[in-house]
Simulated scan of single mutants.
Amino acid sequence: MKRIDVGNHGFQSVQELREKVGTPHEAVVKKNVGIVDDKARYFIAQSPMVMIATSNEKGQCDTSPRGDHLGFVHVANQKQLVIPERPGNRRVDTLCNIMENPHVGLLFLIPGMKEVLRVNGQATVIYGHEVLEKLELNGKVPPLGILVEVEECFIHCPRALKFSGIWEPQSWPSKDSLPSAAEIFKAHLAINSSVSSK
């Protein structure tokens, strides 16, 4: 495998980067607020999916999707929201990262809408609290939840989702041309088996 050698083609400082890309418009900076206002609350209420970005104490990053019914993320107030952690495969990568490093980044999506809502803050993994009852689904209260103390909230421009055509069925690849999740899963197990046997 031939690796890419960037040599002296990588930026060495933020100042050097800024000299290359310039500075953002004042409005782009000022759109960032420290609360979940009524408009953002409504956006979250219409979102069936949020991406959660975390990293561990070493800075190793992970992004995990969470999908559920519309408005499954509970906005408790302008500074706090709660994400249900329903039973899954028990890897709990996101939860383990939060235990080591509470900083999280959230990306809320609404099907068909090209803008996304970004929320950043600090998280705590909670259990047994009465707020989890508000996240009940089919008569079951999630055993765990992620409480996020909001530090930043802002709308993100539509450029990425617009250019990707992600909501346009005519741009989607044929499912027959794609490897299935099972095929990818088996291939990765084979890679690890090959490495561990050496």
Score class of each variant (00 low, 15 high):
Ile110Val: 15
Ala76Pro: 04
Arg41Ile: 08
Arg118Cys: 10
Ile52Ser: 01
Gln46Thr: 07
Cys96Met: 13
Lys134Val: 09
Ala40Ser: 04
Val104Gly: 10
Glu57Asp: 15
Pro111Gly: 12
Gln122Arg: 15
Val119Phe: 07
Ile98Gln: 05
Leu117Met: 09
Glu115Gly: 11
Pro84Val: 01
Ala53Gly: 13
Tyr127His: 14
Gly59Phe: 07
Val104Gln: 11
Gly34Pro: 08
Asn77Met: 09
Val131Phe: 06
His74Asn: 07
Val131Trp: 07
His129Val: 15
Asp37Arg: 03
Met49Phe: 06
His69Val: 14
Pro87Gln: 03
Leu107Glu: 09
Ala76Val: 14
Asp37Tyr: 03
Asp68Leu: 11
Gly71Val: 00
Gln122Met: 11
Ile98Asn: 05
Ala123Tyr: 03
Cys61His: 07
Val75Met: 05
Asp68His: 12
Leu106Asp: 01
Asp38Pro: 03
Val92Pro: 02
Met113Arg: 15
Thr63Gln: 09
Lys39Ile: 12
Ile98Thr: 06
Lys114Phe: 10
Arg41Asp: 09
Leu117Ala: 05
Ile83Gly: 00
Pro65Phe: 00
Arg118Leu: 11
Ser64Asp: 03
Leu117Thr: 05
Arg90Gln: 13
His129Tyr: 10
Ile44Leu: 08
Glu130His: 14
Gly67Leu: 10
Pro65Ile: 00
Ile126Lys: 01
Leu135Asp: 00
Arg118Asp: 06
Gln78Ala: 11
Ala45Cys: 01
Asn77Thr: 06
Leu132Asn: 01
Gly112Met: 01
Asn89Val: 03
Cys61Lys: 12
Leu132Thr: 00
Gly105Ile: 04
Val73Ile: 13
Thr94Arg: 09
Leu107Thr: 13
Leu95Glu: 11
Ser47Asp: 14
Gly71Leu: 00
Phe72Thr: 04
Tyr42Phe: 12
Val92His: 08
Cys96Gln: 13
His103Lys: 12
Ile110Arg: 14
Val50Cys: 08
Ile52Arg: 00
Gly105Gln: 05
Met99Leu: 15
Arg86Leu: 12
Pro111Leu: 10
Thr63Asp: 06
Leu70His: 03
Gly88Gln: 02
Thr63Glu: 09
Asp38Cys: 03
Ile110Trp: 04
Val116Ala: 13
Pro87Phe: 02
Glu100Trp: 10
Leu95Phe: 05
Val50His: 03
Leu95Cys: 08
Asp37Gln: 04
Tyr42Gln: 14
Asn101Leu: 02
Val119Gly: 10
Val119His: 08
Asp38Lys: 07
Asn97Lys: 05
Gln80His: 14
Glu115Thr: 15
Gln78Trp: 13
Cys96Asp: 10
Leu117Val: 06
Met51Asn: 08
Asn120Thr: 03
Gly128Lys: 10
Gly59Gln: 05
Met49His: 08
Lys134Arg: 13
Thr54Gln: 08
Phe43Trp: 09
Asp37Cys: 04
Ile35Lys: 10
Arg66Gln: 01
Phe108Ile: 12
Arg118Gly: 09
Met51Leu: 13
Thr124Cys: 11
Asp37His: 04
Phe43Lys: 02
Asn77Arg: 06
Ala123Asp: 03
